[in-house]
Design a protein around this nucleic acid. Sequence first.
DNA 1: TCATTAATTCGCC
DNA 2: GGCGAATTAATGA
Length: 198
Amino acid sequence: MSINPQIMHSAGAIEQHYYAGDYIFREDSSPQYYYQIIEGNVKLCNFSNDGKEFIQNIFSGGSCFGESMLLLGKPYPVDAIALTDSTLLKINKEGFIHLMGTSPEIAIDVCTALSEKTYNKFVLMRKIANKNAIERLTEVMDMMKEPWGNKDKYSFEVPHTRQQLASLTGLCVETAIRAIKKMEAKKVVKIRNRKIYY
DNA sequence: TCATTAATTCGCC
DNA sequence: GGCGAATTAATGA
């Protein structure tokens, strides 16, 4: 669910390239753009004072982000960081509002994308609360696997490091690793070359 | 290829 | 469960 890149271009959107680790925007800064990913992966996250991070969300090609804060006019509550080298399409507030005004389809697409993210957030929050490490990781992997066509066991290679999985679930790395090993023993996942298959 | 850095794992408390 | 150290993989010169 995202806006046709050509339409965005004609409305004044610009492409911007980011290298892995680059900040796209920072917490507390003021929202300027609607972003759509052409290529690459982006995470939205927070860092606590002691340096630990909590990943709110990870987006890949075709996804968009920043729309909720753009219209709200409040400072960003998260950092956005490129996980891989990424190309993004961004459009400023005026252009974005204009686009929404010219086409009901686009407005609906944007709303749908936003709803989807909100929905996933709710699901994830509910699953992550009050559960042990194994269950949290299972839920996160379920959500990541869902858009993947192949539902077979072990068909899905988890595209994140253990660090990232831990940051997504609010666990520490060691706990995540221990849980993943138990999951392997229970035949929930398979590990090959440190890659996790679910 | 070697050196540096990041990720993972393990032992210990 | 968390800390520090050891091991392994990835990255860059």
